[in-house]
Amino acid sequence: MTNNILMRLNGVTRTYHMGEVTVNALGETSLDIYQGEIVVILGPSGSGKSTLLNIMGGMDLPTAGDVFFDNDNLGLANDNQLTRYRRNEIGFVFQFYNLIPDLTARENVELAADLVDEPLSVTEVLSDVGLADRMDHFPSQMSGGEQQRVSIARAAVKNPRLLLCDEPTGALDYQTGILILALLVKINRARGSTVVIVTHNTPIGDMAHRVIRMRDGLIAEIRENASPLPPERIEW
């Protein structure tokens, strides 16, 4: 693991207006993300972790502050630039997988592969996540774990520098959850992708290089983990 900064958040805030109510989802937050690390962001629901993830992923813009990725300030990016950023740099893994129901596993992955110039092999990536023999199944024919593996394959096939995972194990049972986490570590090792995992499940922090705790829209603590545990040894 090197200490090159991949992303730098500087005084970022996010305020939502829901009708007449104003919600401060994210207070002033500054944070660096390093190349090749695994970061786990912990916090109860409403702590601002998902907002932070959305801003990091170029899905949402900060109300104030700068978000630098490779010296580009995402805080100032327009829609096109954000789309290009998501397309080329980011892989997303969602809590509820969010597969396109009308496409098979292979096609869901192709959907992402079609977007970049040099995608990884769709079949290889699906084999890597253990779905070699389930490729032509539709999401409705797969278990949650399988769907999440497709979702990971869909994120990984673009070979992104940053893999953002929103409660990736939130909808899965323990065994399956561990398997998914192991897959993320595998991708981190093999491809050198930076992995950011958002979760409220504290033990998952044990597998991270750094653990960020959030509370009430602010970073409460950043803890470095000298020896991260392999997922297989995590228990909850």
Binding site: G57, D79, T83, F92, L99, I100, A155
Partner: peptide, 13 residues
């Protein structure tokens, strides 16, 4: 939701 996903993966409007 699907549109959101497509956009999140990097499809533009």
């Amino acid at each position: 939701l699907q549109i959101g996903v497509m956009k999140a993966i990097g499809y533009n409007s």
